[in-house]
Simulated scan of single mutants.
Amino acid sequence: MTAPDAPKPRDDLIVCPHCDAAYTLSRPGHGERAVCHRCDTVLIMPRRKAGLQIIALSVAIVILITAAAIFPFLSISVTGARNSVSVLDAALAFSDGPLVVLSLATAALIIFVPLTRVLLSLYVLVPLVLDRPPARHAAQAFRLAETLRPWSMAEIFVIGCAVALVKVSDLADVSFGPAFWLFSMLVVLVVVQDNVLCRWSVWNALSKPKRS
Rank of each mutant, 00 (worst) to 15 (best):
L125K: 03
V168D: 00
E155Y: 06
S103I: 05
A69C: 08
P9Q: 02
R82D: 10
C39V: 04
L128H: 06
Y123N: 00
T147I: 09
W181E: 03
I65D: 00
P72N: 11
P127S: 08
L74M: 14
D131H: 12
L186Q: 08
V42E: 04
D20S: 14
C19A: 07
V78I: 15
P4Y: 07
S152K: 03
R132K: 15
N83I: 13
W151T: 02
A154D: 09
S207N: 15
F94I: 04
T24P: 02
S175R: 15
I61Y: 00
F73M: 08
A3K: 11
A105V: 15
V101Y: 12
L189Y: 09
W181C: 04
V187L: 07
V168C: 01
F176V: 04
M153F: 10
L130M: 14
V168E: 08
V124D: 02
L186G: 07
V42L: 03
Y123I: 00
G160I: 04
D40H: 12
R10F: 05
L13Y: 08
T79A: 12
P150S: 08
S212D: 11
M45P: 00
T41K: 05
R48N: 04
R33E: 14
F71W: 12
C19T: 07
G51K: 02
S95Y: 04
P150I: 11
A154R: 02
A90R: 03
E155A: 13
I156A: 15
P178K: 10
P133M: 10
V188C: 10
P178R: 09
L125N: 03
D131K: 12
L88Q: 11
A164W: 10
P9R: 06
F73W: 07
E32S: 14
V113C: 05
V202Y: 00
P209H: 12
D5V: 13
F94N: 13
L130K: 10
A50N: 02
P98W: 09
A139H: 04
L109V: 12
R27E: 14
S84H: 05
A34L: 15
A60G: 03
P114Y: 09
D173N: 11
V78S: 09
L130W: 09
K167I: 14
L120P: 01
C198F: 05
V166G: 06
I111A: 01
L115C: 03
L206G: 06
A139S: 11
L115D: 00
M185Q: 04
W151K: 01
T106E: 05
T79C: 02
S75A: 12
L99T: 05
V166N: 05
V192D: 01
V202H: 00
S95Q: 13
A108G: 08
L99R: 11
I110G: 05
P9V: 02
L64V: 01
D5N: 11
R47G: 14
S77G: 02
N204P: 01
T147S: 09
D5C: 06
C161D: 00
R38H: 11
L144H: 02
W151S: 09
A162D: 13
A91T: 11
V35E: 08
F73D: 00
D11H: 14
V129K: 01
I111K: 00
S201A: 15
I70G: 00
M185W: 04
C19I: 07
Y23N: 08
V187E: 03
L171P: 00
S95M: 07
P150K: 10
T79H: 14
D40V: 01
A164P: 01
V129Y: 02
L148Q: 04
T106C: 13
L13K: 13
P134T: 09
S103T: 06
Q53R: 14
